[in-house]
Computed example of a mutant assay.
Amino acid sequence: MTAVVLLEELKKYIEEHTKDIILSVRVKPSSEEAKERPAEVHKMRLPDKEGETKRIPYILLQFLTGKDKQEEGESPESECKIRIIVATYSEDGGEGAMDVLNVLTRIRISLLKDGVVGEQFLIKKPLEYIVYPDDTAPYYMGEMLTIWEMPEIEREVRNIW
């Protein structure tokens, strides 16, 4: 399986495990849009540059690196790193940062409890996360760095020597 499949499965997994966390949305005063909703989940990038603030709250899944290795006498290993970015909005500074921590905590607990996403991708430790201390009010961000054990890709050509 590939990192592309992992991103698809992780998107579905995170949507399912965060759908009941209702977060504030910045709207124009004359707008009749919803003022709260669950975070949207996106893969790799947001749909457009303006989305960095207009689409908040969101969760962004970004592939960072992948590695295939095999030590002598060992089984082959394949892993990749996925960054999970969480962005929220709030007029209350303490609440905005807590919203980020709440979403990250929900994802963290779910991943550690289940240990697997999509039946073939295993989460590995360490699992690192941070709520950015920067003063970016009324927007708040944090991220989690995850490492995934990927299924092996079997060689189709035999060694002839």
Rank of each mutant, 00 (worst) to 15 (best):
G51F: 12
T105S: 13
N102F: 00
E77C: 01
I84S: 02
K54Y: 11
Y58R: 01
D99H: 08
P47Q: 11
G66N: 11
P47A: 06
T88P: 10
D68K: 12
H42S: 02
E74L: 12
S75W: 01
K54A: 11
D99I: 07
E79I: 05
Q62R: 15
E74D: 13
G94P: 06
L60G: 06
T105D: 10
L104P: 00
L60N: 04
E72I: 15
A97E: 14
Q62Y: 10
V103E: 02
E50H: 09
I56F: 02
V86P: 10
D48P: 03
M44H: 13
E52C: 00
S90N: 15
I59N: 04
E91F: 04
Y89C: 13
E40K: 07
K49H: 02
K69P: 00
M44T: 15
L61R: 06
L104H: 04
F63D: 10
V100D: 01
I85C: 06
E50A: 14
E40G: 06
V86N: 04
G73T: 07
T88R: 06
L46T: 07
Q62F: 03
Q62V: 15
I56S: 07
P76C: 04
I84R: 02
D92M: 06
H42A: 01
E91D: 13
G94W: 06
L104K: 06
R106S: 08
I84Q: 01
S75T: 06
K54N: 11
G93I: 09
E40Y: 05
I84L: 04
R106I: 02
I85P: 00
V41H: 04
V103A: 09
D99Q: 11
Y89M: 13
A87P: 11
A87W: 14
L60V: 10
Y89S: 14
G66Q: 08
I82L: 09
I59Y: 10
L101C: 10
Q62P: 08
K54P: 04
P76E: 08
G51T: 09
P47W: 08
E91Y: 03
I56G: 02
E91C: 00
M98C: 04
E95W: 00
E52Y: 03
D68Y: 07
P76I: 03
R106T: 15
V100T: 03
R83V: 03
E40M: 07
S78C: 00
L64V: 13
G66F: 06
K67D: 14
V41E: 05
L46F: 05
R45F: 15
V100F: 05
F63A: 13
F63G: 13
T105M: 00
A97W: 09
K69F: 12
G93K: 15
